[in-house]
Structure formats: C-alpha cells, structure tokens
Amino acid sequence: MGERWDVVVVGSVNADLVVGVDRRPAPGETVLGSDLATHPGGKGANQAVAAARLGGRAGIVGRVGDDGHGELLRGALAGDGVDLAHLVTTPGTPTGVALITVGPDGDNSIIVSPGANARLGPDDVAAARAMVTGASVVSVQLEVPLPAVRAAAGIAARAGVRVVLNLSPAAPVPGELLALCDPLVVNAHEAAFLLDGGGDARTMAAALAGSGPRSAVVTLGADGAVVADGEGTTAIPSPKADAVDTTGAGDAFTAALCLRLARGDSLRAAARYAARAGAAAVRRRGAQSSFPTPDELPAP
C-alpha cells in the first residue's frame, strides 16, 4: 500500500514578520509599532502544521531559501511532525517573507514577498507525485505559481484524491482548475472577486458552487461560514471567541476542513469542525503558534 497522508499541502512557506500597531498609517505617514516578532508562516506551511497539530498525518511540497528563515521554518515544520521529504532548499534565493501589521482589534494587513516560493514549479510537484497521490486530500493555495497549483490539482484528481483550493490571494484561475475543487474555499472578499461583484454570503456560495467547483465554502470570520453544494446552501456558525490576533485563522479553518474530509466527514460536518479550529486560532498571537490541538477546540 505504501505510505499514506491525510493531508498534503502544495504551497508557500514564509517567515512572518509581525508588528503590532495602535492604528495603520495613512499614505506618507509613519507610526510607531511594537517590537518585531518573527514567526513561522506561509499559507502552505500553516495549513500543514494546523492539520498535523489536530492529529493528522501531513506533508508539504514547497521551497525555502538557504538562509536563516529557511532553517527556522524547517525546524518549526519538523517539530510538528510534518513530512518534509519534498520541501526543497533553493540556493541563492531568500525564503518567502510576510510583512504583517496587527491592529488593536486583532485584525491584520499582510504584504507577501514570495522569495523561494516563486520558484516552485510543476517539476517539483512531479517529483512529489508519490506523496500527492498518497494523500486523502491535497490542499493548494495561490501564494505559489499557478503552474505548480494546476500540476498538483491535476495529479491529485487523476489519482482520485480530493482537491481543496483555498483561492488566496484572490487571482483569476482557469475553469478547468475550478472544476477539480471539492470544495473551493474563499473568504467574502475572494468570493466577490471571483463573481465580479458582492452579495450576501449564501448567494455568493451558491453562485460559486454553480460556476464550476463541485462545492464551495465562503468563510466569514467570527460569523462562521456558508457551505454550498448539490444539496443546497447551509450556514455554519462559529463559536464565540475573544480575538487577539486573526493571523492564520483562515488557514486553521482550511486545514481542519481538509483533515475532517480526509477522515470521511461530510462537507457540512467538516465545516463545523473547521469553524471550531478557526475560532480557537484567534485566541493567541501568531499563526502557527495559535493553532489548536484537539483538546483546545471550543465546544460545538
């Protein structure tokens, strides 16, 4: 049978450089912030760590640079038990970095410098074929080049592996990629981008599920999520949580969703579990440092 993974993530691995601010600066303005904190991050690494911390067997396909940030990230991923067999070090290239400001309400603004992530390509995915086809669920995002995402989704789908696309950051994607998604996971801003217009979450989720993906999930932060598929549209509430830092909460949600789908849950049951993971993640600072273990999840 060979090795199996619950969730394999093909995606970014970044160092998060985080500064807290009382308010975000206006154009041309300087404001003082907190001491700089460096955390392991990147949507790909975040989702792999979150799935592993919830008890899943997780692997990652990605790239880091040959610098101190790359060493930090390798150590963090290994410490949570993520399989690093296909995390490639890229000579002469910096590791990806996310510049994050966190306001007093816990909301964040992020600028990503891709670094080595921009070098991830279809050849890397092909080299990781055994890992990709040995997964129950493959999760992809858009912090790495689209050709790598398409290659991963195609290899996974042809092998009967479920594909979850977290379309973040928002960008145009071909219809043949959307058709492989089960589900497509987006927040309200990303949903509005794809639909070329906003609307209420239920309407957007239904429209997305009818536009190519086999199913869709629109995440709404503290308001939970909306799930849409051939069975209709369902609102998924979120447990109440006092938000300290929302960085990584969406990744915790997506990782938990992937893990529960890998374990055989229905999409709605998986989304209810994922909402609990997302709520838990806002209670501590940082991304990976905030991800819960199963006994830290709030009650349903």
Rank of each mutant, 00 (worst) to 15 (best):
V13H: 08
I100D: 06
G250D: 05
M204N: 10
G62Y: 00
L72Q: 00
P172Y: 07
R57Y: 01
D200T: 03
G11R: 00
L17V: 13
V64R: 12
G65E: 04
M204K: 07
V163I: 06
R24Y: 14
A188R: 13
D200N: 11
G103F: 00
M131N: 03
V13T: 14
T246N: 09
D16S: 09
A152V: 01
D35H: 12
V244H: 04
Q47T: 06
A270H: 08
G154T: 03
R283P: 04
V137N: 12
S290W: 07
R23H: 13
G2P: 03
D229C: 10
E3G: 08
G11Y: 01
E71S: 11
T293Q: 13
A299P: 15
A241C: 03
G232Q: 02
F193T: 09
A151S: 11
G68A: 08
C181H: 03
L77G: 08
V227L: 04
G286H: 04
L184N: 12
V19K: 10
V82E: 01
G44M: 09
G41I: 13
A277D: 15
A76F: 02
V185T: 13
Q141K: 01
L184W: 12
I155Y: 09
L184T: 13
A275R: 04
A153S: 02
A151K: 00
H86T: 07
D83M: 02
T133C: 10
V137F: 07
A192R: 13
A207F: 02
A287P: 14
A201I: 11
S109G: 03
A15M: 09
R283I: 13
V21F: 12
T93C: 14
S211K: 15
A241L: 10
R283K: 13
G79Q: 06
D66S: 12
Q288W: 10
V244R: 14
S238P: 10
A26H: 04
N46K: 14
T30C: 05
A192L: 06
R268W: 05
A76Y: 00
C181F: 03
D223T: 03
D67M: 02
G210H: 11
T247P: 08
T89F: 02
A201S: 15
